[in-house]
Design a protein around this nucleic acid. Structure first.
Lengths: 112, 112
DNA sequence: AAATATACATAATTTTCTTATGCATATAAA
DNA sequence: TTTATATGCATAAGAAAATTATGTATATTT
């Protein structure tokens, strides 16, 4: 997890991508899914996740739906129509970025 | 340049990689080289670059050598021995990170 | 002559995290 | 059975790392 700080700026995109694939998720579920998918490489902290979810909701990209499971509450988030569009944009941006960085740091290239 | 904010956290690694490939560079040169290598995708701002160079120097990863060219000064930076080691580490971390993110956002995978 | 490029630097602000803390219920382990 | 861990939300204080705005000065191009 030494590269934890590299993911700065990509949290929103990660959340949106997960919701695009899963339709409907709650916060805790997202943290676990990311941990699982990245084999522990990325750990979304709650202090980052919840404010991010609130912001995405405030920006109109996510809708919330509160559910009660047993005696505990869950907040299910899903993409709005606008959120779906933005997700596509952000995923394209992310792939551009990854390609660019890949090129920059690829050991095959010496950057003269 | 919509993805400009995604590169947060990777500036140090970019600088180190460039210096690994080029032995010796000055600040302005680095900004131009990055712009060129990324076809304008990444623009290192001075407000980010110079503090970063100073920090890398303070941390013992870079050595400085001031040169006077015409009537203007340049500060040439190069990797120290320790800097070379750290560069290798950071490049590995970066590649791990890129692989992880690639996997997370790759459109071929639906993340159930 | 004026605009742009080269070359450094720092301060104020913003963005985006981490770390710490708090509350509460459910389940597993000792 | 009580204690630790897991589930589930949230926010506040602080740190890290950028952006934006300035400032200074020389060199080159228009």
């Amino acid at each position: 997890m030494g590269n934890q700080k590299l993911y700065k700026g990509s949290l929103q995109t990660i959340i949106l991508k997960l919701l695009e694939s899963n339709d409907k998720m709650y916060g805790y579920e997202i943290t676990q899914k990311v941990k699982e998918l990245t084999k522990g490489e990325l750990n979304i902290t709650e202090g980052a996740l919840y404010p991010a979810l609130h912001k995405l909701e405030a920006d109109g990209l996510l809708d919330v739906e509160v559910a009660k499971v047993g005696n505990r509450l869950r907040k299910y988030y899903k993409l709005t129509e606008n959120g779906t569009k933005e997700t596509a944009n952000k995923l394209l941006e992310m792939q551009e970025f990854l390609k660019t960085m890949q090129h920059l740091v690829n050991p095959k290239f010496s950057l003269e």
